[in-house]
Simulated assay, not measured.
Amino acid sequence: MIVTLMLLTACSLPRSGPNKKEIYAGAVERGGNTHVIYVNDHVTRATNFMPVYGFSSSFRSAGQVGADEIRAGDVLGLSIWENVDDGLLTSLGASSTSLQEIQVDSAGYIFVPYAGRIRAAGNSPEQLRQVITQRLSAQTPDPQVTVTRVAGNGATVSVMGKVVAQGVYPIERPTRTLSAMLAKAGGVGIEPEVAVITVKRGNQQGKVWMTDLYSSRSNDIALRPGDIILVEEDQRNFTALGALGGQTRVPLGNEAISAVEAIAMVGGLSSALADPTGVFVLRDEPESVAGKVLGKPVFGMQRIAYVLDLTRPNGLFLARDFLIRDGDTVYVTEAPYVQFAKVLNAVTGSADSADALTSIGD
């Protein structure tokens, strides 16, 4: 009867999760759909890779936008002086006229009275001045023309996300690179260690860690009109469960984190509960990596439960070399005696309660 009571109690007692035996029962060799693999040097070499952020050669090789180049969407200001009393554009008694806020159309052209439709995009203000002067010279003697850019609407980028001041900013001489434009927007509004910067350009995009942007000049790319700059907090994380100092979801940041470090980040193994032979890292492994780990061709994503036995002579070294990746679940099983102690305590407690009730009845 005592044995039956203990078995029934064991089935109903609370615990932090499955034990080693139950995890092994789901192995492929036993009809399950999970590969249970002990971590060794081969496994650490096959699985240790980190996502690499960076810009492609097309982003890196793009030259800086000319600060004086006129583009579609720019707004120009013209001032024209004529060397006659009754000029084409000037009013009676005036020697000059100003044509303000002339917008370059989507095809890159502007219209100037008596000079006609003129292509402005692709020219500098000086080059455009010469074209307008030449056109007007046929109708008024020795005209003097100045051209200024009133606004840079044709060469702008959008800065969005976790920055101090989101907005649309013109590409000007001081803000022609990624770092300069971020500074123009007030800088990032989150910790630099977890900030990821994405630049979208047409159908392409590239991303870089904030810290890598400033550590390598090659990442400080030149901006192009229409670029979208998005600053986000890195969302990569792992989940810690089981007999640990804490059970939570932990951000990875931009550093490579080993299994030992991951365990330490949540308070280490629970000295009262943890089984150091049953540290599992549960992961959906891509086909290319799974094939290397298993040593055979596989098709599609594979569920793998990596086992770290910290009691082995090189167990801690392997745990130190095994890298945690985004989406991993680090699970530590309870030591076998823990559940036995719970059962014994429950049964003993039940027996004491029964004796107490018998005494009261008597």
Rank of each mutant, 00 (worst) to 15 (best):
M1Y: 11
T4N: 14
T4R: 12
M6G: 10
L8T: 07
T9V: 11
C11Q: 10
S12P: 07
E22R: 02
G31P: 06
G31I: 05
I37P: 06
N40E: 13
V43I: 14
F49S: 14
Y53A: 13
A67W: 06
D68M: 13
I70E: 05
D74C: 09
L76E: 03
L78M: 13
I80C: 00
N83D: 14
L89S: 05
T90A: 09
Q100D: 14
E101D: 13
I102L: 09
S106D: 13
G108L: 04
I110A: 05
I110E: 01
R119Q: 15
A121K: 02
G122S: 08
N123L: 15
N123C: 13
Q127S: 08
Q139F: 12
P143F: 07
P143R: 00
P143D: 15
S158E: 11
V159Q: 11
G161N: 01
G161S: 03
K162I: 10
A165L: 15
P170C: 14
I171D: 04
R173S: 13
R173M: 14
R173I: 09
A183Y: 14
A183W: 11
A185F: 09
G187K: 01
A195G: 02
G202W: 02
Q204N: 11
D212Q: 03
S215R: 15
S218D: 13
D220C: 03
I221K: 02
L223I: 05
R224V: 12
P225N: 12
D227V: 06
E233V: 04
Q235N: 10
F238Y: 06
T239D: 15
G246Y: 06
T248S: 08
G253D: 07
A256D: 12
A262P: 00
L269P: 03
S270M: 06
A272P: 02
G278W: 07
E285H: 04
E285T: 15
E285N: 02
S288Q: 10
V289S: 07
A290S: 05
V293E: 00
G300F: 07
A305C: 02
D309E: 08
N314I: 14
L316I: 14
F317I: 15
F322D: 04
R325Q: 15
D328H: 00
E334Q: 04
A335N: 07
P336K: 04
K342L: 08
N345D: 13
S359H: 10
G361L: 14
